[in-house]
């Protein structure tokens, strides 16, 4: 770990100002990923700005009937919040399928969006990695890439975003509220993370100095028909090989609305409206779901060790949609793959 200085701030505006006064500074809240990255010398901030005093740990109703999740509310407090459990059980299920109880108690909602890939090569300074060191090359290409992307990757980077929570937030059309030197703005969740392209070192579309202050969930929570399916190498404490957030609105057996987001397959949670439109007006049959799954994976390519994820993702999508279409399950079911 490289030496760094530390300061603590009390409000978002101060945090943004503080960032401007220190070069190579980084915000820190739960620190569950950042500290690992610092210990491995992947992240080498000269200054840390502590955010934990900011009044952003709220979970509150919005005037539009939705819910605002403060950036500093912990993953655990969010997942177990009665309003989240009742109105957005998909989100609760997704959060609880990630990490461990200890990590979720520390990790914050804002930090969950900011966590970095778990690509082996990104974490190992002795190997080339364009994300860590632009221009050095991608070791996962032609290397051990079992956990890597099958969609939207580039010749520069085939890393995936590791979050479960973000997959659910993508499916739920959440908004990301940020504050920066130019004031506040709101990004649709789908526009928050980036595909790697030729700039894999940039995970997201935050501008320099911008701070996440809240996540906003729209009113529609799909609390009747939802499923988060996480497929991984052990029953807990493993990142998703493939995860699927699926929600449906049904009229009898006919689908009136559908959302499907994928995790573990791309540099950002993967979602395509065209695939969801294939489901609208269709019966909740395996054939319907398979059609949407095939559409979502039509551009997928494997890199050797991860070839299996293409078929796995297809099957997982069908499974998740079947689960979502099944009898209403009520609030939060146990995560299980």
């Amino acid at each position: 770990m490289h030496p760094f200085s530390y300061s603590s701030v009390n409000d978002a505006a101060a945090a943004v100002r503080e960032q401007a006064t220190h070069s190579h500074s980084t915000f820190i809240a739960g620190g569950t990923n950042l500290l690992d990255l610092m210990k491995e010398n992947v992240a080498r901030p000269a200054h840390l700005i502590g955010l934990n005093q900011l009044p952003l740990a709220f979970v509150e109703d919005t005037p539009e009937g939705g819910l605002r999740l403060g950036a500093l509310a912990t993953n655990a407090n969010t997942a177990y919040h009665p309003e989240v459990e009742k109105r957005y059980p998909l989100l609760s299920q997704a959060i609880l399928s990630g990490a461990t109880a200890q990590l979720r108690n520390m990790a914050t909602n804002g930090g969950n969006l900011m966590q970095r890939t778990r690509c082996y090569y990104f974490y190992d300074l002795t190997t080339p990695c364009n994300k860590r060191e632009p221009g050095s090359g991608c070791s996962a290409l032609g290397g051990f890439n079992r956990i890597h992307a099958i969609l939207g990757a580039s010749e520069q980077c085939i890393a995936t975003h590791p979050s479960d929570m973000c997959v659910a937030l993508t499916a739920l059309d959440a908004l990301v509220c940020v504050q920066g030197p130019q004031g506040e703005r709101v990004l649709p969740f789908a526009d928050f993370h980036r595909l790697p392209g030729s700039t894999p070192h940039q995970d997201n579309n935050l501008k320099p100095g911008e701070l996440i202050t809240a996540l906003e969930l729209p009113k529609q929570g799909f609390a009747q028909h939802y499923h988060y399916l996480k497929i991984r190498d052990r029953a807990s404490y493993a990142f998703a090989l493939v995860s699927i957030a699926a929600v449906l609105e049904l009229d009898g057996d006919t689908i009136t609305e559908a959302r499907v987001a994928l995790g573990g397959v791309a540099h950002k949670p993967w979602r395509e409206r065209a695939a969801e439109e294939l489901l609208i007006g269709q019966p909740t049959t395996e054939a319907t779901f398979t059609k949407a799954a095939s559409y979502l994976l039509r551009g997928a390519r494997g890199y050797g060790h991860n070839d299996f994820k293409i078929e796995l993702a297809k099957r997982g999508i069908v499974r998740a949609l079947q689960q979502a279409a099944a009898e209403p399950r009520g609030p939060r079911a146990l995560p299980w793959a």
Partner: peptide, 8 residues
């Protein structure tokens, strides 16, 4: 990873 001779 045999290119590096390193456990990854």
């Amino acid at each position: 990873d045999h290119r590096f001779g390193r456990f990854m």
